[in-house]
Computed example of a mutant assay.
Amino acid sequence: MKKTYKVGIVGLGVIGQRLISAFQKNSNVQIAAVCDYNEKLAKETAQECGNISYFSDYKSLLKIEEIDFVYVAVPPAIHCEVVMAAFQHNKHVLCEKPLANSEQEAEAMLRAAEEAGLVHAMHFPLVYEKAFATIEEHLQNDMFGKIKRITLKMHFDQWPRPWQQTNWINSRKQGGFIREISPHYLQMIVHFFGSVKEVTSYVDYPSNPELSEHAVIAVLKLEDGMSVLIDGIAGQAEKEEIAFTIHGEKQSLSLLNWRKVKLANRGEEWIEIEDSALITPKGNLVEQFIKRLNNEQAFLIGFDEGLQVQRILEKLIQE
């Protein structure tokens, strides 16, 4: 009989709420407690989860001995503080991206995880989507041929978007679309193509030093010499579009707006691939995390990969 693991959730904003249903659907996970600085939200969420314990201070949640792991979904500037405290209380950690708010914090978090011998993983949702699995298969089968370039387009008519009106998402300290959006794709670049050796970045910041960027143009150089072009802008008259494109000699693939996949053979038009024709992903994050807790083989993105992403992120931001 498999063990049931108890999770404590710290941070109940838009992102934190998304994994609650995933935890509830897994028979080997029980949500034991929730925490948010907004006590009213914490109480409401606790009631929805079956009248479980709730707190406005994460330190109180971490004192619950029966909690096996903590899901950290607070804003990035607080990740390090909460994660380090969780390790000190001998809790495994599942953390939102980006890993930290600086390279130094990310290094300390990875070091603490390794020294404690605890499971550490990050929530990069694209990893468990069909698009990721499809890209992986195309690379393994050399369907692209020689890859000429990778491009990442992040265009927003409004930032923050209407559903993202928080007190931090547009702050220069921890917000902006570079920190919020690009890590999803930087992770794929690192995972599939290896280390980034050089970053050249030009960022357009507003005159108000408290606010996040308006635009970025950047070039990443990979260890094999390949270039990644990043084009990000906010506030232009155009519908939001995020496009991650791998340009190959034989075939190119574009992941549009998170889930739509288009392919183009050499000299041909782009064709959208039906969802049913995409590759089935490797389970889901919660399943894989529980496997790792059971000392089974699991597909997780650890703090080590999170640190690589953080290093690129900090060079991109360059204030």
Rank of each mutant, 00 (worst) to 15 (best):
M1F: 10
K2L: 14
G11N: 04
L12W: 03
L12E: 03
V14L: 10
S21V: 15
N26G: 11
I31P: 04
A32V: 01
D36K: 01
D36I: 02
A46E: 07
Q47H: 15
G50F: 13
S53N: 14
F55N: 05
Y58N: 00
L61N: 00
V72P: 04
V72A: 05
E81V: 00
A86H: 06
F87G: 03
K91C: 04
K97W: 04
L99V: 04
A106Q: 09
L110S: 08
L110D: 08
G117D: 15
V119M: 00
K130T: 13
Q140L: 14
K146L: 08
F156Y: 13
D157T: 10
W163C: 14
T166V: 10
I169H: 05
R179H: 11
Y185K: 01
I189Q: 05
V190A: 14
G194M: 15
V199N: 12
V199K: 10
L211N: 13
L211M: 15
I217W: 04
V219G: 06
V219H: 08
I230Y: 07
E241Y: 02
I242N: 00
G248Q: 05
S254E: 07
R259Y: 14
K262S: 01
G267F: 08
E268Q: 12
I271G: 00
P281N: 00
L285K: 03
I290W: 01
L293V: 03
N295S: 13
A298T: 11
A298E: 10
E305Q: 15
V309I: 09
R311A: 06
L313R: 02
